[in-house]
């Protein structure tokens, strides 16, 4: 019995150690926008269907967004093509960014920081190691993140048919705004 209790204690202790709940901040609101600025057409879309979490002491992060949730575009058909032909959202329903923050920043202190996030960016099922600069504002236990970066379609195996080469830019500008708050201890 005592041995069992010991074992139980070990399991609880170790798993508890692995995920310190109060260190985890979660996304409560966020928007990802992108636009393609091509000679003949400007395409814009955005989604608020963003989830994510940051472990502030390990400085690790993970963000996910549903591809099919992007809205905007210039027509319903364009949105369908985005999902069907380019992003193949049936096969790859999510885009994700997962990794670690390079700078040693104490997120629990109020202040503004410019940091670099290093990790793998997964879009269209293709992983790329990326370092992305972010501007962070920590205030009263919330972390606001703002970041602009570029995604190259070729990096993620998204091909541009010749017929739309004037309408779709090979460089997509992405802009992220999100707010994280400490996860309530459960």
């Amino acid at each position: 019995m005592r041995q069992l209790a010991f074992l139980l204690y070990m399991i609880v202790f170790h798993t508890g150690f692995a995920s310190g709940q109060k260190d985890i901040y979660q996304v409560t609101g966020g928007t990802i926008r992108f636009h393609s600025d091509a000679p003949l057409e400007m395409i814009k879309a955005a989604s608020k269907n963003l989830i994510g979490a940051v472990h502030v002491s390990k400085r690790t992060f993970l963000f996910r967004i549903s591809i099919a949730s992007f809205q905007g575009f210039n027509s319903p058909r364009q949105k369908e093509h985005f999902n069907e032909n380019y992003m193949e959202s049936d096969l790859f329903p999510l885009a994700a960014y997962s990794g670690k923050i390079i700078e040693d920043v104490d997120f629990t202190k109020d202040g503004e920081y410019n940091i670099r996030a290093k990790g793998k960016l997964t879009i269209h099922g293709v992983e790329r190691q990326r370092i992305i600069k972010c501007h962070i504002v920590c205030k009263d236990g919330t972390i606001s993140v703002q970041s602009d970066f570029i995604v190259l379609l070729a990096d993620h195996n998204i091909k541009i048919p010749r017929i739309v080469s004037d309408k779709l830019s090979p460089e997509i500008n992405v802009s992220v705004n999100l707010v994280l708050v400490q996860k309530p201890s459960s």
Partner: peptide, 10 residues
């Protein structure tokens, strides 16, 4: 960049 603990939460 394999954050298993965060993945579990999401």
């Amino acid at each position: 960049g394999n954050n298993a603990d965060l993945e579990k939460i999401l």
